[in-house]
Computed example of a mutant assay.
Amino acid sequence: MAKRKWTVAEVRTLGTVTDVETAASVLGIGRTTAYRLARSASFPVPVLRVGHRYVVAVENLLKAIGADSGADPAV
């Protein structure tokens, strides 16, 4: 299965926070690896634990993919 290519504009439409699976997809990380990294505090961006969920601030995700440059490349 091919990995989805995210654009900066698509990431911005996610809102304020997103789930760890979506964040992992944006970063090109698989689901199982994403949860393992989140549990070990090794995910590439800060992850918050809210109850039984892991969430990622979209602002941090945008920084991680280099969205500060103003360009809108496919990620």
Rank of each mutant, 00 (worst) to 15 (best):
K3P: 08
S69W: 03
V58D: 01
G70N: 07
V20P: 01
K5E: 15
V47A: 08
V56S: 09
T13N: 06
T7W: 01
T32S: 08
K3F: 05
R31Q: 07
V11K: 11
G15M: 03
A41R: 13
A23M: 03
W6N: 10
V20S: 09
Y35H: 15
A34R: 02
R53P: 02
R4M: 10
L14V: 04
V50F: 06
D72F: 09
A71K: 10
G28S: 13
T18S: 04
D68V: 12
A23F: 00
R36W: 02
M1E: 14
A2E: 15
A24Q: 02
V20T: 10
V11R: 09
V11H: 05
T22I: 14
V45A: 07
V17G: 00
K3H: 09
A34F: 00
A57C: 03
E10T: 02
R53D: 15
G30R: 13
V17S: 01
R12M: 01
R36I: 03
A34M: 01
R31V: 13
V50W: 00
D19H: 11
V20H: 04
G66Q: 07
I29F: 00
V17F: 03
I29S: 07
P46K: 09
L62P: 13
L14K: 08
G15H: 00
L48R: 13
S42H: 09
A23H: 02
M1N: 13
S69F: 04
V11I: 15
D72L: 12
T7D: 06
K3A: 10
V20C: 11
R39H: 13
N60R: 08
S42P: 00
T16A: 12
E10L: 02
E21D: 15
V11L: 10
A71P: 03
T18E: 07
A71S: 14
T13S: 15
A41Y: 14
S25P: 01
V75K: 01
S42E: 13
R36S: 05
A41K: 12
L62H: 04
R31S: 11
T16E: 13
I65S: 10
T13H: 06
S40N: 10
V17I: 09
A74L: 07
W6D: 11
A9N: 14
P46E: 07
Y35M: 04
F43P: 11
V26H: 10
